[in-house]
Nucleic acid binder design. Structure first.
Length: 508
RNA sequence: GGCCCUGUAGCUCAAUGGCAGAGCAACUGACUCUUAAUCAGCAGGUUGGAGGUUCGAGUCCUCCCAGGGUCACCA
């Protein structure tokens, strides 16, 4: 949609013209900053009696209080804010008038002057010269803040969630706490990367555009390469490529990147999301569990200063060791059903229905759901919400775990775990299947289970099987959602608050 | 996709079916150090969109759009 200036924008365009008439360049090329606001404030504290310091600072005008002869303005820069004290005697009649009349909230300015403390006690810049750096045409939402008993109270905050997401730049510009969320997110990823690097893992990048998709049960996005005349899929996981690298001789690899799943959006689902997966040769899922709990505690400590965090008013302790419970015990504990007494889908569905009736709760046993799917459904409905403290749920049904190694003597389970924190699934891992014959059978079993028109059915990846036939070391693998981890460590209840530009429906 | 809720000035919000309002921002001015500055004045609207009921609709009805919640779906 083309831009039609609003009346407020027309006023600012008029000011822009006045500035240019006065010979002021509204979008100059060069900036002469000597100090950030933070540095300027620190510098002032080091000054001795009678000492002076001149600084040139830059930032966006956040507030302006015009007292006639004197104008007080706060500018905000990357890490803080600073008050400008603009006095007519100090900068001359014209500079004073232009500052008062032609600048607006939202403009970027540069100001030069000496640091001093006002009568009210705030360290400020006594401006002797200023320069416009960028004229803002559209008014940012006005946010006023006041300090009451050390707490910052905000007024008229920009709060409409839809507009905040659609215009994240404006959200970030006026809401410092939002800026902080994404700093924390960067720290989380940085700490995760450090932990992996320090444990001998090699960071790699594998294809996002893939001729075949796999590694998860999800519908992919499809696209097309014109010159190759080839249909391509955006990856739904990294798994099959990372394990090829173990065949190639790397012992420990990981990747942090974007996965794409063509599914519904919700408070914990976005069509593209960030995952970290790793694979370690000679590890089994017990080793992966130990690594997981250490890593999560490390990240929390690095980011929040403690392995004990607060999420939605609940205290959560990420320090190892975490609770470990088998799937069978977990289901039994929270539903009363021992699914080993119902080892086929039909019988288990009956047991689930009876349990639901007895407890007066709705249960879902969709026709055609496999035994494993039913168990997974019970986990999601009855167990997951209770797992507030970090918990590993271990030993998953084989039929929903086609890439995990079986447990010897147990035809129904595999060495797989998921871990849960704050009632949310945070990750998935297993002792990886490295037997190419078994793997082919698992893939073929899936083909029968899903039916050929089910889009969640992964095509059989013959190249992956070929790689495995060259010999893949036994290994443990792991995947976790970085967005959900960020939600946890920033105390946010929706994934959109931790994505800079969450996906929204197109308007009009 | 089902159900529920929401959409009014740039921002935050009012308005029993009866003249669309307030605060902040803007604009005009006053003011010797203010900090949600203050004071005086002035302006700002297709009430998300399209229909309908009614003498009269921001308000009631239908459809559509967008968002939120919830359920379904989603390893």
């Amino acid at each position: 949609m083309t831009w039609q200036p609003t009346p407020l924008e027309e006023q600012r365009l008029d000011k822009l013209a006045s500035l240019q008439e006065a010979g002021i360049e509204p979008y100059p090329l060069r900036v002469e900053r000597t100090h950030t606001s933070e540095e300027a404030l620190a510098l002032f504290e080091t000054l001795g009696e009678g000492e002076e310091a001149t600084v040139t600072v830059c930032g966006r005008i956040q507030s302006m209080r015009d007292m006639g002869k004197t104008v007080f303005a706060h500018i905000v820069d990357g890490n803080g804010r600073l008050q400008l004290f603009v006095r007519r005697e100090a900068i001359g009649e014209e500079g004073h008038r232009h500052f008062r009349k032609l600048l607006d909230l939202g403009d970027f300015v540069q100001a030069t002057g000496t640091l001093f403390r006002t009568r009210a006690g705030e360290v400020s810049v006594q401006v002797s010269d200023w320069k416009l750096l960028s004229k803002a045409i559209s008014p940012l939402p006005v946010v006023k803040e006041q300090e009451v008993d050390g707490e910052v109270v905000r007024y008229s905050a920009f709060a409409d969630v839809e507009e905040r997401y659609r215009q994240r730049y404006a959200d970030l510009a006026v809401n410092p706490d939002v800026r902080q969320v994404f700093r924390t997110r960067a720290q989380i990823i940085s700490a995760m990367r450090r932990f992996m690097d320090d444990h001998g893992f090699l960071e790699v990048e594998t294809p996002i555009l893939q001729p075949l998709y796999g590694g998860a049960a999800a519908r992919p996005f499809t696209t097309f390469h014109n010159q190759l005349k080839q249909e391509l899929y955006l990856r739904i996981s990294f798994e099959l490529y990372l394990k090829r690298l173990l065949v190639g001789g790397y012992e420990r690899v990981y990747e942090i990147g974007r996965d794409f799943r063509n599914e519904g959006v919700s408070f914990k689902h976005n069509p593209e999301f960030t995952q970290m997966e790793f694979y370690a040769a000679y590890w089994d899922y017990n080793d992966v569990m130990a690594h997981t709990e250490q890593m999560m505690a490390y990240i929390a400590e690095q980011v929040t200063g403690s392995a004990v965090i607060s999420y939605q008013g609940q205290e959560i302790n990420l320090a190892p060791p975490w609770t470990r419970i088998t799937m069978r015990d977990a289901i039994q504990k929270y539903t009363g059903i021992d699914y080993m007494n119902h080892t086929d889908a039909e019988s288990l569905a009956v047991a689930v229905q009876e349990m639901g009736k007895a407890r007066g709760v709705a249960t879902q046993t969709p026709p055609g759901a496999s035994w494993g799917k039913l168990i997974d459904g019970l986990l999601g409905d009855f167990v997951e919400p209770n797992l507030v403290q970090p918990t590993f749920v271990t030993q998953y049904p084989r039929d929903i775990s086609p890439l995990a190694k079986g447990i010897p003597g147990d035809p129904l389970h595999v060495e797989r775990f998921e871990f849960f924190i704050a009632g949310m699934e945070m990750g998935n891992a297993f002792t990886e299947l490295n037997d190419p014959i078994d793997q082919r059978q698992r893939f073929e079993m899936l083909q029968q289970m899903y039916g050929s028109d089910d889009e969640e059915l992964n095509p059989i990846d013959e190249d992956y099987l070929r790689a495995m036939r060259y010999g893949m070391p036994p290994n443990g693998g792991f995947g976790t959602g970085v967005d959900r981890l960020t939600m946890l460590l920033t105390d946010k209840t929706t994934i959109r608050e931790v994505l800079l530009f969450p996906h929204l429906r197109e308007r009009e």
